[in-house]
Design a protein around this nucleic acid. Structure first.
Lengths: 249, 249
DNA sequence: CGCCTCATTGACTAATCTCAAATGGAGTGG
DNA sequence: CCACTCCATTTGAGATTAGTCAATGAGGCG
C-alpha cells in the first residue's frame, strides 16, 4: 500500500523535513506514511505530556502548533520550545525518560502517538530513519542552547528578531513559510512566556520593529519587511540549524 | 591489573558519580579506571573544544572545573554549563556532532580524551556503562533546560540561589561538597556570564544574600548559611537532577 | 615595588515590569 | 441585528531591576 513518493512528500511535513537531511528509501517513507495516516486530533487546553507522568509516549506532529514549557511556583511559566508540523514531541522523553516538562497544543493539533516499542522497532528496521530522527533531536537540542543564549545575553528586540528568524527557517523546511513571512498562531502572551518578557513589553517590541520597517506581526501573520535587517539586528547565524547529523544510528 | 573497587571508587569521581545510578560490575569499573589513569593536564586559557571544529573527541574530567559557552558578536558570552570532576565534556559532540560551542578550563584541569571509536566500543562491551553514561547525558540536558528557565523567569537573586543549590547537589554526588558548602573556583565574571547578569550586579546579589544570612561566597568558598532559606527563595526542586535513567543502552 | 586581576562600592542610566485603562474584534444569547 | 462578554492588543505613567561608568581596595606574583 505504498503511495507515490511525491504524494507522501507533499502532504507529510515530517517526511519533508527528514528528506531535507537524508534520502529516505521507499520503505523508510512507507513507515513514515503509516505513522502519518494514524494521526488523531488533540484540542487546545489539554496537556499532551504532563510533567512527571510515567507514560512515556511521543507524538509526531502532523498539523497545528504545540509548546513545551515548565511552570514555576507563583504561576509564571517558561516556554522551552514550540513544536511545528513535522516535529517530534517528547522524543527525548521516550529516548531518555526526560519528561520533566509539559507539552500542550497552541492550536488544535493532529498528531500520531508513537510508543517506545514502536520507535525502537522502527529504528532497527529502518536505520536511515533512525539517523534522520536523531539528527532532528540533536537539532532541537541546539535550538534550546541558542534559546538559552537569547535569554541570557540578548536584548528584547534582538530576542524577538532572532526568534522570528529561527521560526522562519524551521517553517520553511516544511513548506509553511518563505523568506517574506508566514502564518503564526502565537499570541503575545505566548511570545512573552517564550522570550522571558512581559506581554506588554512584547507588544512594545513588536511595535518598535514594525516602525523600523523590519517586520510586521499582526492578525496571526508575520511579514518580514527587511530580512537582512533582522539578521543584522539579532546576529542570526543559521549554522546551528543545519549542522551535521548524528553518529549513533 | 584491576584495582580494589574501593580505591577506584574513592579517587575516581566519574566512577563515584555513575555508581550513584547503576551498580557497575568489576569489569565496568576497570574500564572506567583505565580511562581515569590516562588523564593529562590542560591549562587555563586554551580551548579544549572549539566552536565548529571537526575533531569530535570528548573528555572525561578527573579534576578541576571547565565551562562550555557561546560567544556573541560584540564580545558578550553566555556560559551554558560548568563541568565539574566526574563530568563528561563534549559527550554530545561525540554522540550527536553538536559541537556548536566552546569548552575551556576554568581551573587547571586533568582529563582523559575519549575518541568516538573508543566510546562506541566501550558501549558495546559494557552496556551497563553505556546506560550510566546516557543517564548522565540526559541529566545534563535537564540542567540546560532548568538553566533556561532560570534566565527567562527568575530574578537575579533567585537565579544565584538556584545555581548554587544545583552546583551543591552536583558536587555532593562526587564528594566535593556537603550541605554546608563547598570550594568554588568561579570568579564573579564567570558567574555573570553564566547567569546572564553583569559582574557588578553579581557582586551586589552576593552581598544581599550574605546580609540576609542565606549564603556566603568569599575567597573561593561557598558557605551555605541557611539551606532551607535558599531552597525557598529559588523554589529549587531537585527532581530534575535525579530522574530515571535512559532506555537506549 | 609595580603590575595584574578580581572584588567592592557609589552614582547615574537604561531596560523592563507592573498597574491601569482604553480599544477592538469574535462569539453568544436574546 | 443588537447588547454583552471575553480575550488579545495597545498605550501611558510610574516603579523596579539590572546595567554602565568610574573609582578604590586587596591580594598575588615577577
Amino acid at each position: 500500500m505504498t503511495e507515490p513518493i511525491s504524494a507522501a512528500f507533499l502532504d507529510n511535513p515530517f517526511a519533508r523535513k527528514l528528506t531535507a537531511f537524508v534520502a529516505l528509501s521507499p520503505s523508510d517513507l512507507s513507515v513514515v506514511s503509516d505513522l502519518y495516516r494514524r494521526r488523531r486530533p488533540y484540542p487546545v487546553g489539554v496537556d499532551m505530556i504532563h510533567q512527571g507522568q510515567s507514560d512515556h509516549s511521543a507524538y509526531l506532529l502532523a498539523s497545528g502548533w504545540a509548546c513545551s514549557y515548565k511552570l514555576l511556583r507563583g504561576g509564571a511559566r517558561q516556554i522551552v520550545d514550540f513544536q511545528i508540523p513535522g516535529d517530534f514531541i517528547g522524543l527525548r522523553s521516550v529516548l531518555f525518560r526526560t519528561s520533566d516538562h509539559n507539552v500542550e497544543p497552541v492550536t488544535p493539533v493532529h498528531a500520531s502517538v508513537v510508543t517506545q516499542t514502536e520507535l525502537l522497532n522502527a529504528f532497527s528496521l529502518t536505520p536511515r530513519l533512525a539517523t534522520a530522527v536523531l539528527w532532528a533531536a540533536s537539532r532541537d537540542e541546539a535550538m534550546v542552547v541558542e534559546h538559552l543564549v537569547d535569554l541570557g545575553r540578548r536584548s528584547a528586540s534582538e530576542r524577538m528578531a532572532h526568534f522570528i528568524l529561527e521560526l522562519n527557517m524551521r517553517l520553511r523546511l516544511v513548506g509553511l513559510a518563505d523568506k517574506a513571512g508566514f502564518a503564526c498562531p502565537l499570541s503575545q502572551y505566548l511570545l512573552a512566556d517564550a522570550l522571558g518578557l512581559s506581554a506588554v513589553h512584547v507588544n512594545r517590541v513588536l511595535r518598535e520593529l514594525r516602525e523600523e520597517g523590519l517586520m510586521t506581526f499582526q492578525k496571526g501573520q508575520v511579514v518580514i519587511d527587511n530580512y537582512d535587517g533582522l539578521v543584522a539586528l539579532s546576529s542570526f547565524d543559521r549554522d546551528y540549524l543545519d549542522h551535521d547529523g548524528p553518529l549513533l544510528a
